[in-house]
Design a protein around this nucleic acid. Structure first.
Lengths: 196, 196
DNA sequence: AATATAAATGAATGTTCATTCACTTAACAA
DNA sequence: TTGTTAAGTGAATGAACATTCATTTATATT
């Protein structure tokens, strides 16, 4: 038995994500990817069933990495403010350290692959967050809200800020830079909205 | 001189947007599009320079429609609460009446075409919104904030809600439905965050 | 009715695409 | 050392791709 060459797998993943972010989903060709990763086209099919499977697997892998990072040092028993601050910082850090993967996940989330992507998503994160919010409500740190409304207020602004920062934006100033200070200022306002 | 057949132009636009939302940017082929729109492939090239031009033009057209809708009955002199309520309702209405175009714009915004899309965007909307916020700050209805932070809090949650509603979401309940009531409840919290 | 003009076409071009397959290579078990 | 297994390959295949072009068609003007 010959062992899989881990470097090949990593090279395929990394080059694929790069290609998609740079040239779009329609810029990802199996042959170009093989050349970029230094493997034979046929090798990719050892790791992935077909082109779509490749895309979905990559998205799941990257998204799992984001979820794990966002839960680092997190505990659902934390105070609401403390927990939110940690999650915002963790997510922002993931984006700073993995901008390409972050853009990739956002692209997939807004593509036709979204449904398959969601189906396969684990429930663990959802459960932790539900516990966190239930706890915060119990401690009168958070108003009662449908989960979707809560999520939208709690994280919608963060993702919007990240998008402003990552690509420039029709309405963003050219010189816009996402500082930790601005992020925390924004978070304080979000907390103001969500406190009883 | 033979006049352009407006129906053909509309058919191309409509089918292209449908195709992209259903099958993704990599699912849009000029020949398939021509067949779907009932025209010759060559006809498309009368209207658009090439495939990318087609995509960008479609995105600009749809985005302009969204901007116009969002400014319907809007006046930058309105009170902050009134103005925000109107914009939220206008945007939600656009989404309800044009779900495919809305998804299309969101897809382009998160794709590699984003930069070209932004470059070509008009400044009118930005100016109106700047006037609106400046006015609200003067009237002590809005705290002072960098434009990006303000925008993120003011509209980030709305777009997140729309996404929850349009596709289901990893963390959304299966039965989630975006009612006007929930939207207005969420807006009230956003306003709470942004009021001095 | 004749002319001019641009819209519209269908077939054709050369390229690139995803995927497969017969084959070779590496590593471990015997 | 030899046999077995799966990793890895390069070339090949046929389909689909974006785009072009010689030609036809419709219409507004003369």
């Amino acid at each position: 038995m010959r062992a899989r060459d881990e470097n090949k797998e990593i090279a395929i993943r990394q080059k694929a994500v790069e290609m998609i972010v740079k040239e779009g989903l329609d810029g990802l060709s199996m042959q170009k990817l093989a050349r970029a990763a230094g493997v034979s086209p046929a090798t990719i099919y050892i790791y992935y069933k077909d082109r779509e499977d490749l895309i979905i697997q990559l998205a799941l892998y990257a998204s799992e990495k984001l979820t794990c990072t966002s839960l680092e040092n997190f505990d659902p028993e934390m105070s609401f403010e403390e927990g939110m601050k940690l999650q915002w910082r963790n997510r922002a850090r993931f984006f700073t350290e993995n901008p390409t993967e972050m853009l990739f996940v956002e692209q997939i989330k807004h593509s036709q692959h979204y449904e398959k992507f969601v189906e396969a998503n684990k429930e663990h994160f959802r459960d932790v967050m539900k516990k966190f919010t239930a706890n915060a409500i119990k401690n009168k740190e958070l108003i009662e809200l449908p989960f979707e409304a809560h999520w939208s207020i709690a994280f919608g602004p963060l993702y919007q800020l990240i998008k402003f920062h990552s690509q420039g934006h029709s309405y963003a100033s050219k010189e816009f830079h996402l500082t930790d200070e601005l992020m925390m200022q924004t978070l304080q306002l979000v907390l103001k909205a969500l406190k009883p």
